[in-house]
Design a binder for these strands. Structure first.
Length: 1032
RNA sequence: GCCCGGGUGGUGGAAUGGUAGACACGCUGGACUUAAAAUCCAGUGCUUUCGCGAGCGUACGGGUUCAAGUCCCGUCCCGGGUACCA
């Protein structure tokens, strides 16, 4: 009998389905355990081998826990609202629901092939009304609540209203907008309904407001902070501009403290927690009010170094600060306005690429330092951000490098405030050591005392107070898109009102086209008779609470019943990618805290333990071309990948575009394909450049200055391009460096040269662009459409491979179906685990798969003689050796699963089977335990073996074996004998030999004696059962 | 710059402070075969030696310890995150 995984899989898939082997009930005798995967977005491209990594790991753990006697909830579902389906809809007119449905079916088919033990009866889809009804419902609850800072929880807005009408807002400490006015009960009661409602918006946990948003013109949408990387959109690397728009927001900042503090309760990786901490960015300091000289206004600043207040020599406002206009004197008006205009014109990218340049303008006004009455000038400068703190900074050049740079540039005084500060001639010194000088009130004090004294003084004089500032901003919660949850809101005038709960779900209406209306309204503006909010919810809405829906996925009365929630409580193990650190994992914690405040869920943190599976990377093959001495120095062309034959156009149909590459842009020329992808690692390129220079080579990446030459002469580019095309030459010489056939071109320049190039696919662009360019962190990469030149033919080209993200757009995708087809699902599962530690990123490399495949066959060969197909199984009693092998395996595998070291589990199985094979052990009593042990890893094979052993299915309902230490003790121990810690020999002793006897024997050992050479033995370290070390 | 990880054979990777390199891939040799594949056996960190052996080895430099890949200090490099955040 050959080992034929395909037959086995088919058979047991059918059996499991018919017998509902993995169906789970809420409740029962067993303890509960909840294992959750981050649910996938069903893209048109289907799964690639990277996706299942985490699913396999969680499935192994779920199966393990089940065998250990737990009632395990291990569900699956789909995060099915999203952009690719909408893009496809725009192109084809096909309703996104249809595409989504097709894609989900593909996913289900693929997932079922890999043998996951999901309870499919609980499957959810975020785009279905029965699901998004509850997403809308939670939104409504957020709208109905505000965050009370005294009780530290969300409370009803209706209660707030009754307080307002009795005592105004004087006694209310709540999370609200910064510009919320103080008012009395009388004020409140006099307000119109409209005014009252507008005021309440400042308190609600979700609210519409006109705010600066990150708008990406190329994508036609607003991006959240976590969707922007290095000033360009994360997807596609498009420019992002600041724009004022009316948007729904979530007051996540109300929960900043709790989100930060809650991190101590969860078992997540340090790096992930650290990422969230940084993202929330709590800084503790003080706010101080500076009065403007001869005017009524004051300017409030936030500082973390109130102790340096006597070193203030200027004040800087953000160019957008609201007081700038009123502070600017007639003389300075032109200069200030010019500066404002210049600052506004600069894109995020420009700002980031020129952080070292110092610029600013003097307003002509002065503020008075409240501590020493010094009058200091007010500047505006774009190093101060409007969106952080108060948009104003007190300039202390002695203690802050940026302030120092600014002071030097504008020739402002630099006043030391601590005796321990070093000379200020070349740079600032931000030390907190020493005693204060030049500081009146705090002279002679140390940092801590001084800070306390000053904050007390601020509060006494009512000019400031101790304050905690967060980096975290409120989250924008609307998208001008079609394929998302409708917001259950209608408007009376400008005032938003909730629809009735009985009207839920508010069904997404049909539209004729999935584009904005002619007047620029979101696609929902096209829906007939639609009288509700036109934007839809963002992608993260549906994923912010989905783990509760699995608990009771069919419930029509509640998002999940109280009983279900109180039974499953929270997720015991959550597995997913770390790329969600500052997105999903933060938003979902926020919603969970809110649901907790409402008393709807029992725990503040919903994911007790989280494992991040590492990305499986693809291997891409590149062809490099350069003059010989630059070989391998940098990347130029990415040409065919052997897996896919000749290069094709970037995308043939929209459905080719997968999740990873949905915003990548591909261009086609008659014989060239140009790809523009975002390039992030600026500083790393700089490092490489330094290294190359040191090695006497030149790495061809240009600095901004070098690049400026090219940018200032766009026609030059056009000429070069034309010349290149005319001459049928693919390469262009770089004028700055004639040795190199290169032309560098920035993303910006690319769009200037051909603006449509950044927005449309398949544009015929007359741009040849062939290497990394650095200024705007965009990299152009050129691919030959027809790779009909001969590699290495004239030594002009050299090939090499590199590791990068696996994505359809990079032609390096490997499909799991192919692997399952070829090797079987169990082999695929074990191989993915065997690749390395689960949390580590690793390149996909099938070279080692024969090892796993051989292992399964070897295991099979314990059951059958592969030549004669005769069963080898016997009922003989196991020997001591066999029991030892088995119990060692039980011990090691169990241990390793518990610590998520799944790669070593596979090793241990291999070791065990190798040894059983050596012992020719085909004994049922041994193999039945092996089958159970292996069931989490190789569920099909284990089930088949279980039945071959003559047992009734299912192996997955058995009890996990425990090891017996008694079988593991051996009669003799081999002791390593070291001298001064260096291994010199090994000697065997009966296990119970005592130290004295071992010592005597060791001293009698000839080899050891030779090493000791008569020197006195100072000490002998003896650890029973482990080792001997002789110190001389 | 700052914050988190990490650096071990040709490769992926193992090692509660206690025999570094488990397990696997690859490679070399052998068996079986007309041949190949598959399978099986042996070897495989580096240097040196016919061999026994010896020396050196976990990025680099120090330290703690009877004993360090593992702990501490410093340096370099790689990966991830983040950034005029006051």
């Amino acid at each position: 009998m050959e080992y034929n995984p395909r037959n086995i899989e088919e058979k047991w898939n059918k059996y499991w389905e018919e017998n509902q082997t993995y169906k789970v009930e809420n409740g029962g005798e067993k303890p509960k355990f909840y294992v959750l995967d981050m649910f996938p977005y069903p893209s048109g491209a289907g799964l690639h081998v990277g996706h299942p990594l985490g699913y396999i790991a969680s499935d192994i753990f779920a199966r393990y826990k089940r065998l250990k006697g737990f009632n395990v909830l291990h569900p699956v579902g789909f995060d099915s609202f999203g952009l690719p389906a909408e893009q496809y809809a725009i192109q084809t007119g096909q309703h996104p629901a249809v595409t989504t449905e097709t894609n989900i079916n593909t996913y289900i088919k693929q997932l079922k092939k890999i043998g996951f033990s999901y309870d499919w009866s609980r499957e959810i889809r975020t785009s279905e009304p029965a699901y998004y009804k509850w997403t809308q419902w939670i939104f409504m609850q957020l709208f109905k609540h505000y965050y009370d800072k005294n009780q530290n929880k969300a409370l009803l807005i209706s209660d707030l209203v009754s307080i307002f009408s009795k005592e105004g807002n004087n006694n209310i400490k709540a999370a609200c907008d910064d510009d919320t006015p103080d008012f009395s009960a009388e004020d409140w009661n006099k307000m119109s309904e409209e005014a009252q409602q507008m005021l309440l918006m400042k308190y609600r946990l979700t609210f519409p407001n006109e705010s600066m948003v990150n708008f990406c013109p190329a994508l036609g949408m607003v991006l959240s902070n976590d969707e922007i990387k290095d000033g360009v959109s994360e997807r596609g690397g498009h420019p992002v501009v600041q724009k004022r728009m009316k948007q729904w927001s979530m007051r996540i900042t109300a929960y900043a403290d709790r989100l930060l503090d809650g991190l101590t309760e969860v078992d997540w990786s340090d790096s992930l927690k650290e990422q969230q901490r940084n993202w929330i960015g709590r800084s503790i300091g003080a706010s101080v009010s500076f009065k403007v000289l001869d005017k009524t206004e004051s300017i409030e600043v936030f500082t973390t170094r109130i102790d340096t207040i006597y070193g203030v020599s200027f004040m800087v406002l953000a160019p957008e600060h609201e007081l700038v206009a009123s502070l600017t004197t007639a003389v300075q008006k032109d200069e200030v306005e010019n500066y404002q205009a210049w600052a506004a014109s600069r894109s995020e990218i420009d700002r980031m690429s020129e952080t070292k340049r110092i610029s600013g303008a003097f307003t002509g006004s002065y503020v008075v330092n409240p501590f020493n009455n010094q009058e200091v000038p007010i500047y505006i400068a774009d190093y101060v951000l409007a969106g952080y703190g108060t948009g104003a900074v007190m300039g202390v050049p002695s203690g802050d490098q940026r302030d120092w740079n600014f002071a030097k540039h504008f020739d402002l005084p630099i006043i030391p405030v601590l005796d321990a500060q070093k000379d200020m001639e070349t740079q600032a010194d931000n030390t907190k050591e020493g005693k204060y000088i030049n500081s009146d009130l705090i002279n002679g004090l140390d940092y801590k005392t001084a800070t306390n004294v000053l904050i007390a003084e601020l509060e006494k004089r009512k000019i400031g107070k101790g304050k905690t500032q967060f980096r975290l901003r409120n989250a924008i919660f609307s998208r001008q898109r079609y394929w998302g949850e409708p917001v259950p809101i209608y408007f009376k005038g400008d005032i938003p009102y909730l629809i009735e709960e009985s009207e839920l779900p508010l069904i997404l209406p049909n539209v004729d086209k999935y584009l904005p209306t002619e007047t620029g309204e979101p696609p929902l503006g096209r829906a007939k008779g639609w009288k509700y909010e036109l934007s839809t919810m963002p992608g993260w809405a549906g994923s912010s609470w989905y783990w509760y829906r699995y608990m009771d996925s069919k419930n029509e009365q509640e998002f999940a019943s109280k009983e279900a929630i109180n039974y499953w409580k929270s997720v015991d193990l959550y597995v997913g990618g770390s790329e969600h650190a500052t997105g999903h994992l933060l938003y979902s914690r926020f919603w969970n805290h809110f649901l907790y405040d409402m008393g709807l869920v029992p725990e503040r943190e919903y994911a007790k333990k989280l494992i991040n599976q590492g990305m499986i990377q693809g291997r891409s093959n590149f062809v490099y071309r350069a003059k010989e001495r630059f070989f391998e120095e940098y990347l130029m062309f990415k040409v065919l990948n052997p897996h896919f034959g000749d290069l094709k156009p970037r995308f043939e149909t929209m459905s080719d575009i997968d999740e990873e590459s949905k915003y990548d842009i591909g261009f086609e020329h008659s014989n060239l394909v140009i790809e523009v992808i975002s390039y992030k690692k600026l500083d790393k390129i700089e490092r490489k450049r330094k290294k190359a220079t040191a090695d006497g080579k030149r790495l061809l990446i240009l600095t901004n200055e070098e690049l400026a030459e090219v940018i200032n002469e766009p026609n030059l580019v056009a000429k070069k391009v034309q010349a290149a095309l005319d001459s049928k030459e693919d390469f262009i010489q770089n004028e700055n460096n004639p040795e190199v056939e290169q032309l560098y071109i920035s993303y910006d320049l690319l769009s200037k040269y051909s603006p449509e190039a950044v927005t449309k696919l398949h544009v015929d662009v007359n741009i040849v662009e062939n290497d990394v360019l650095n200024t705007n962190k965009a990299m152009g990469m050129l691919q030959f459409k027809n790779a009909n030149f001969k590699l290495n033919a004239d030594k002009k080209f050299t090939c090499s491979a590199d590791v990068e993200k696996m994505s359809k757009s990079k032609y390096n995708v490997v499909n799991p179906d192919v692997m399952v087809e070829k090797y079987g699902a169990d082999c695929f599962r074990m191989f993915e685990m065997f690749l390395g530690p689960i949390e580590q990123a690793k390149p996909w490399d099938t070279n080692g798969i024969s090892g796993t495949s051989g292992f399964l066959r070897k295991l099979w060969s314990l059951f059958y003689d592969l030549n004669t197909s005769k069963s080898l199984l016997t009922d003989a009693e196991p020997t001591k050796d066999e029991l030892k092998v088995l119990h060692q395996c039980i011990k090691d595998v169990t241990n390793d699963i518990e610590r998520f070291s799944l790669n070593t589990c596979v090793s241990n199985f291999m070791k065990c089977i190798n040894e059983l094979k050596r012992l020719n052990c085909s004994k049922r009593l041994i193999l039945r335990e092996i089958a159970i042990l292996l069931a989490p890893f190789a569920p099909y094979t284990a089930e088949e073996l279980w039945s071959l052993l003559g047992n009734e299915p299912s192996v997955h309902h058995q009890l996990y074996p425990t090891h017996n230490e008694a079988y593991l003790v051996s009669d003799t121990v081999e002791y390593p004998i070291s001298i001064n810690g260096k291994l010199r020999d090994t000697m065997s002793f009966p296990a119970d030999t005592d130290q004295a006897s071992v010592e005597t024997a060791v001293q009698g050992n000839e080899k050891i004696q030779k090493w000791i050479e008569g020197q006195p033995v100072k000490k002998v370290i003896f650890i029973k059962g482990r080792m001997v070390n002789i110190v001389i």
